[in-house]
Structure formats: C-alpha cells, structure tokens
C-alpha cells in the first residue's frame, strides 16, 4: 500500500526490501507489581501529591519495555508539570460540584463551556502526550488545532444523539487524531478505514440484536413454564452484562485493527491482528482474577494486556528506520491532558 507522501520530511520513502519488526513488550509482572504498589502507597501517604510521579513512573516503565528493532520508547513528561495540571483539574471539578451542590439549576449551564472546552482539552492532551513520547531520541508531535477539532465536533457532534451514526463521528475524530501526528518531521498518514471501522460497529449491532433475541426467547420460555425462581433476574442481568462485554471486546479488536492497519509513517506501515475471541478471553479472565484478588492482580492484568497487544502488532519498514529527522523544539502545557483524564475523554488510537 503506497500512499502519496505530502510532506517534505527527511524520511523519504526509499524503496527497498521490506523488513518486519515485531513489537516486543518485555515488562515483568513481579517488577511492575512492586512499582505499582509503591506508587499506590506513596500516593496515599502524600495525600495524592505523589500521583503525578506515580503516573510518570508507570508510563516510563511501560514505554521503556516496549521495543521495536530492540529500541525502546521513552516517556519524558515532567511530574511537576503533571502535578500542576492535576491541581487545575481538581479546581475545575470543585467548581462543577460546588455549583451542582449550591445551585443545581445552573449545573446544566456548565455543560456549555465544557462542550467548548472539550476539543481544547483533547487537542492539548494529545499534544502533551505526543511531545513527551520519543523513540530513538526523536519526539512525536501532535499538530491538530483547536479550530479544526471544534469544527469536527460542531459539524458531526450531533451524530452522537442519533446513536447509529456515532461510529461515523468517532471515525472522523480518529482520522483527525492520526493525520495530525508526526514522528519528528514525518507526518502520519492514514488510508481510508471507514469501511472496516463502521462495519465492525454494524456487525456488533447485529450480534447484539441476536443476543437480545435469544435472551428474550429464553425469558418467554421461563415465563411459559411459570418459573418464579430468584435465579431468573440474576441470570438475565449476568447474561446482559456478558453480552455487552462480548460486544465491547469485539468492537475493540476490529476497530483497533482497522485503524492501525491504515496508518503509515514515512517508510513504516503497521499491522495489527487482534482477535475478538482473544480479547474476550483476556478481558474476562482479567476481570475475574482482579476481582478475586481484590485488585492486587491489576498490574498482572495490565502487563498481560499490553503483552498481548504487542504480540499482535508488527511494524513493516520499506526503508531504514534511522532516517527520521527531529523537528523544532516546542513547549507543551500539561493542563489539557490531566483535565481530560479526569473527565474521562479518551480518543485513543
């Protein structure tokens, strides 16, 4: 798949023999467990202040253990900057709750500035994350503008309310996110991934209908048999949740593949081959084990998930990986990311 290159980046598409690089993830559960529990304990002892350092240490551990061509990624964020961002986020949330408590009628009005602020948070947070991620001493960058993001939200945002067209909005946003990333001076390109992306949602919708039909039939049968067992409502809720879980994992696997397989960075293509049934098993077993260990298995689940994801991702290079040029230095503020995280805005690639 060759896309027309529009940038003048130094990483020219030198034609050559294709080289495949497996993405390696070498973290160990026992090592990460200790980092995780110490993070947790120090965050408690410092009344939350340490959480900024905890976040950086966690990310640095995960990035440092993710390798392509035996070179690891780097997370370079400054914990002090993150702490400032968190304080701003806490202040905004305090205002939100304060208004909700003292003047609940005005609370709805607060959603308006939040909707205008939303795209700004998204853009800032992507820029902060990209700028603080490096590979082979070359930083990533995100150059999407607030205006462009706001435009997408204004033009396509109403699709959220139509429900069925939500995948289209999401696809549009992901394209915006991907197209505006750079590795050094090399622009990310993304081929059209609308078809596989939207068909993932469509299949999930069909599957969901089937599951609901099956559940409904089972209910009718139970009703006809006159069962009054308390097992029935429990059974219904458990199977509904299981169904949602199944659909979530299915959509996750299919859309992740659709996105990553369309991305191209200079001479580099990515290949993602997640399988829905693997993800279902992964999420389900993680959920059960974490619940049974009252949370202590969280680091195990995190390492395991990342290991699976890495094992199914390959970088395919049609040229050398050492020709990417570093761009100009820039300063990126952190406030966006922290606020976005607290409000759970997540447009991950």
């Amino acid at each position: 798949m060759a896309l027309p290159s529009t940038d003048g980046g130094a990483a020219a598409n030198v034609a050559g023999p294709e080289k495949r690089y497996a993405v390696e993830f070498s973290a160990s559960t026992s090592e990460y467990f200790r980092i995780w529990i110490v993070n947790l304990a120090l965050t408690i002892v410092t009344l939350g202040i340490y959480s900024a350092w905890a976040k950086v240490r966690k990310r640095r551990y995960f990035y440092g253990h993710t390798r392509i061509d035996s070179e690891s990624f780097e997370y370079r964020a400054n914990p002090v900057a993150i702490l400032k961002g968190r304080l701003i986020a806490v202040a905004i949330i305090a205002v939100f709750y304060g208004v909700g408590y003292f003047a609940p009628l005005y609370k709805l009005l607060l959603w308006i500035p939040l909707a205008i602020l939303g795209p700004w948070l998204l853009v800032r947070s992507l820029a902060f994350n990209a700028y603080n991620t490096a590979y082979r001493n070359v930083r990533f960058r995100f150059e999407g503008t607030y205006r462009a993001c706001l435009k997408i939200v204004l033009v396509y945002g109403w699709l959220v309310f139509t429900g069925l067209l939500y995948p289209y909005l999401k696809h549009r946003l992901i394209r915006f996110v991907a197209e505006n990333h750079r590795y050094g001076t090399t622009r990310f390109e993304i081929a059209d991934f609308k078809k596989p992306f939207i068909s993932a949602y469509a299949s999930a919708f069909g599957l969901g209908m089937l599951l609901m039909g099956a559940l409904f039939t089972a209910l009718m049968w139970a009703g006809a048999l006159g069962t009054k067992s308390p097992v029935l409502p429990i059974g219904i809720s458990v199977s509904s949740y299981a169904g949602l879980f199944l659909l979530f994992a299915y959509i996750r696997a299919r859309t992740t593949n659709a996105i990553w397989n369309a991305v191209r960075i200079g001479p580099l293509n990515l290949e993602s081959s997640l399988r829905a049934r693997d993800l279902i098993w992964l999420y389900l077993s993680n959920f059960i084990v974490v619940a049974l260990t009252i949370g202590l298995a969280t680091p195990w689940a995190a390492v395991r998930s990342m290991r699976y994801r890495a094992s199914k991702t390959t970088a395919i290079a049609s040229g050398p990986l050492d020709g990417f040029a570093e761009g100009q230095a820039q300063q990126v503020s952190v406030a966006g990311e922290e606020v976005a995280e607290l409000f759970d805005i997540d447009i991950a690639l």
Partner: peptide
C-alpha cells in the same frame, strides 16, 4: 527522591509493607 523510591521498588519487603498500608487505608 526517585532514587530512594527505586530502591524501595526493588525490595519485596517494602512491597509487602506497601500492601499492608494500602489495605489499611
């Protein structure tokens, strides 16, 4: 600071103490 944290993170005994503290909290 982070050098000290790193030494703590490498020691299972401190990890156990951290579990106890988190559980108590």
């Amino acid at each position: 600071l982070e050098g000290w944290v790193h030494r703590i993170e490498r020691n299972w005994l401190y990890a156990l103490a951290a579990i106890a503290l988190t559980a108590a909290f």
